[in-house]
Amino acid sequence: MIRVLVAKPGLDGHDRGAKVIARALRDAGMEVVYTGLHQTPEQIVDAALQEDVNVLALSILSGAHPTLVPRIMELVRANQMDDMLVLLGGIIPEDDIPVMLAQGVARVFGPGTDTNDIITYIRQQVSAE
C-alpha cells in the first residue's frame, strides 16, 4: 500500500490543486493523508514522520518555495527520512526547478500535469525502492 502526505506549506490559501491530486491518488488506490492549509515545514515533516509515508507531495502556489523547500528538506535529512520520495507541485518558475532538484526534490510537476503521469511516476519510484 502506497501512503502519500499531500501538504500545503506556507501562507497561500488555495488548495484546489492539492485536493484534486489527493482525490486522484486515492482513486489510484493510494492512502492519502491530507493536513489542510497553512502548514509550517516542522508540521509537515513531523506528520510525514509519524504517518511513515512513502511520498511527500508538496503544493506551493505562493512563490515561497525558495525558502520553504530548503527548510523542509533540511528537516527531512535531519530525521534521516531518506527513503521518502519528495515531490513538488504548483507554480514553480522554470529557472527554479534545478535548484529544487538540487535540494533533494525528486521531481517538479507544473500546472496542467496529467494526474496519471504523477500516479505512474509514484508507482515506479516506490516499487523501485
Binding site: 486515492r26 482513486d27 489510484a28 488506490g29 492519502v32 491530507y34 516542522e42 508540521q43
Partner: peptide, 28 residues
C-alpha cells in the same frame, strides 16, 4: 474506498494543536 482501495485520511486537519506536542503521537 470499496472501489479503489484508496483512502483520504483527513483527521489530522482537526488535530493540529495537539499533534505538534512532543508528547503526542498520531497515526491515521
Amino acid at each position: 474506498s470499496p472501489f479503489s482501495g484508496g483512502a483520504i485520511l483527513g483527521d489530522r486537519i482537526r488535530m493540529q494543536d495537539s499533534v505538534m506536542d512532543p508528547g503526542v503521537f498520531m497515526r491515521s
